Amino acid sequence: MATAAVRRLLRPTSSTALSRARRLLSSTASSPPNRSPNTNSPVSFDWSDDDESPPAPPPASPAKNPTLPPPYDPFSKKHAVADPPDSTNLQEVFHRMRTGGLTDYAIKMFDGLSKDGLTHEALALFSIIKDKGAMPDVVAHTAVLEAYANAGPGHWGDAVRTYKRMLSSGVAPNAYTMAVLVKGLAASDRCAEAGKYLLEMLDRGMRPNVETCLATFEAHVRMNKVEEGKALLEMMKKKGFVLDEEGVRSGTVKRGHVFRAVMNMLFGK
């Protein structure tokens, strides 16, 4: 039923239906920051009590008529929203957040949750935006976290601090949030940290997708920490999680040293 509801809301059968779905999101999500006490935005993050303060977003006024991206097609294999031209330019990334709103980030989260089969969570996210007229706090926090995760290895600590600040603010992460954090840490070759939060996903009752698991174990191979990777796999199995071999094979196009090493680590092949 949830899947059918998603398709009825967002199936790209006509330009009118797509425009309506986009308006439902943009009309409530692109409002100026802090319009509601229940709405967070990148400007509300205070890093003053951290030992190492990351660069703060530059002050800017919200755009009155932000240019919206093309209509969202949930069944397209392309990314739901285009990434910024330079993800390492945090000033540009935060400027886009503050002037264009968080609609794009909400769409990416909706798309990610839906593709992982978490349609109930995706619909709940959509309902908050559509019916309550507020951007969910989890979207704002995850947007900042994702900005740091995409900015490169030098900002992995900022991504973790953002996640901890999110928890201390009483905002619960969802599977998309956790996947962004784990993959960002893995891309920065922070194997131990990626493994830690992969296990936390399981503790929170979330099932990591193949992409998130592969990113973590490939990082262990790159850093020559195969034994640590095997230990992580055993801990995941003890928590009831078993990787599907066929899913892993179809989830990567790599057929070189890393692929063989990952397959050997995970399945003894």
Rank of each mutant, 00 (worst) to 15 (best):
196 K>V: 07
170 G>A: 08
141 H>D: 02
194 A>F: 05
77 K>G: 01
24 L>F: 03
85 P>T: 04
171 V>N: 06
74 P>H: 06
66 P>G: 13
82 A>Y: 03
67 T>I: 12
161 R>C: 08
116 D>M: 15
198 L>Q: 09
146 E>R: 14
163 Y>W: 01
77 K>D: 14
95 H>G: 08
154 G>V: 11
267 F>C: 07
61 S>I: 13
259 F>N: 10
59 P>I: 12
50 D>I: 11
172 A>S: 09
178 M>G: 05
31 S>H: 11
178 M>I: 03
121 E>T: 14
198 L>V: 09
29 A>P: 06
236 M>D: 05
210 V>T: 15
203 D>A: 08
184 G>D: 06
182 V>H: 07
54 P>A: 10
154 G>E: 15
96 R>D: 15
148 Y>E: 01
25 L>I: 15
57 P>T: 06
53 S>Q: 15
161 R>I: 04
266 L>R: 00
269 K>N: 15
176 Y>C: 08
72 Y>P: 04
116 D>V: 06
164 K>I: 11
178 M>W: 04
143 A>V: 12
197 Y>G: 02
54 P>G: 09
195 G>V: 03
261 A>C: 10
175 A>I: 12
141 H>L: 02
37 P>K: 10
76 S>R: 01
263 M>E: 10
217 F>L: 08
128 I>E: 15
